[in-house]
Structure formats: structure tokens, C-alpha cells
């Protein structure tokens, strides 16, 4: 569990590194603004419980950091460095994700209450939020190395949660079927990317797909 959270932190650090390296080169080439908007929506709808329950100082501060980073990323892409954002290739129709995910969260949830539905929505949406980014890579056929590192850690942290959930079920009898199924879906969506990352990026090549 700690490992999962450490990697979660790590993906945010990589994200920040990505932003800072972009600041240096004034370029956001290859990053999907739509995926980043979806992630901002994911963290906003999931962490509304900041106002209702307190788990630990760590938990609350990480939630605030996640929300802050998500909106900072969106701001940088659409406002500050709009000129270098490649919107022409970022053409995934997000309504095809948000509408079905919204519908599903009303139908399959733990409790039919506003906060619980929004939490379920965020879990489902997170599992597919990377699709605009993967679509963009498949469209342009390549990605900056820093983008691929960022995507790798974004995928890795949910994959590590799978280990955590197995552990918690085994030792604490705790499980949350919605989170587990969504986590499995999210990890599966990343598999193709993981394969490319290991076979290409780690061997020092820039990720580029055959035309």
C-alpha cells in the first residue's frame, strides 16, 4: 500500500518534472490537454470528501496536492503555453467517455447518494481518462520521452494498487469491488503502452510507432 502511494507520488513528481522541463523548452508537444482535463475532473469529484471525513494529515494534504497539480497542469496547457499545445492532434471526443461513465456511475455504485455517485464517477473516469492521450500518440505516431515516462508512472501506480488490494483482501478482508474492477480495466488499457515503453523507451529510443 505504501509502495502504491509512493509510486502515486512519483507519478506526480514526474508530472511536475514534465511541466518544468516544458517551461525550459516552452513546449508541451505530445501531451493531451483533454486527458489532463479529465484527470482534473477525476480528482475534483473524488476528493469532495475532504470536507466530510478526515483520515490523516498525509491523506488530506495529498488530496489537495493532487487537485492543485491537476488544475495547474490544465492551466499551463490551455493558458500559459497554449502556443505549443498541439490541439490539432488532440481530437478524442471526451463526451464518448464522460457520458457513458456518468450513466454507469448512477447504475452501479455502493450507495445512491450524491457524494458516493461522484466518487464512483471519478473511479470509472480515471480508468479511461488516459484514452485521449493514447489516441493522440497513436495519431501522431510518436511521443516525447518525458511524456512516456510520465505515462508509465501514471499507469504503474494503479497497477501497484492491484497488489495492495490483493494484500488488503488477504490480510484485512477488505475489498472495494468498484475500485478493483476499474483498476484492472485501467491497467489493461496501459498494457500496450507498457510494452512499447519497455521495448522502446527503456532501450534509449524515442517512442515512435510504425506508420
Amino acid at each position: 500500500r505504501l509502495l502504491g502511494q509512493l509510486f502515486e507520488m512519483y507519478q506526480f513528481i514526474v508530472r511536475l518534472l514534465f511541466i518544468f522541463s516544458s517551461l525550459c523548452f516552452f513546449s508541451l508537444t505530445g501531451i493531451s490537454g483533454k486527458s489532463q482535463i479529465l484527470f482534473a475532473l477525476v480528482f475534483t469529484t473524488r476528493y469532495l470528501d475532504l470536507f466530510t471525513i478526515f483520515i490523516s494529515l498525509y491523506n488530506s494534504s495529498m488530496k489537495i496536492i493532487y487537485i492543485g497539480c491537476a488544475y495547474a497542469t490544465v492551466y499551463l496547457i490551455y493558458m500559459k503555453f497554449k502556443a505549443t499545445y498541439d490541439g490539432n492532434h488532440d481530437t478524442f471526443r471526451v463526451e464518448f467517455l464522460v457520458v457513458p461513465v456518468g450513466g454507469l456511475s448512477f447504475l452501479v455504485n455502493h450507495d445512491f447518494s450524491p457524494l458516493e455517485i461522484l466518487w464512483t464517477f471519478s473511479i470509472y473516469l480515471e480508468s479511461v481518462a488516459i484514452l485521449p492521450q493514447l489516441f493522440m500518440i497513436s495519431k501522431t505516431g510518436e511521443a516525447e520521452t518525458i511524456t512516456t515516462h510520465y505515462l508509465f508512472f501514471l499507469g504503474l501506480y494503479r497497477a501497484l494498487y492491484l497488489v495492495n488490494w490483493f494484500w488488503r483482501y488477504y490480510f484485512e478482508g477488505f475489498f472495494d469491488l468498484i475500485a478493483i474492477v476499474a483498476g484492472v480495466v485501467q491497467t489493461i488499457l496501459y498494457c500496450d503502452f507498457f510494452y512499447l515503453y519497455v521495448t522502446k523507451v527503456l532501450k534509449g529510443k524515442k517512442l515512435s510507432l510504425p506508420a
Binding site: 502515486e8 471525513i53 491523506n59 488530496k63 455502493h110 450507495d111 494498487y161 477488505f174 472495494d176 475500485a179
Partner: peptide
């Protein structure tokens, strides 16, 4: 489902 699992994960 009758019980809502605790939300202690991020």
C-alpha cells in the same frame, strides 16, 4: 450492495 467500503485510499 449494503455496505459502503471505507475511502481511506487515494
Amino acid at each position: 450492495e449494503d455496505t459502503v467500503p471505507e475511502k481511506d485510499e487515494l
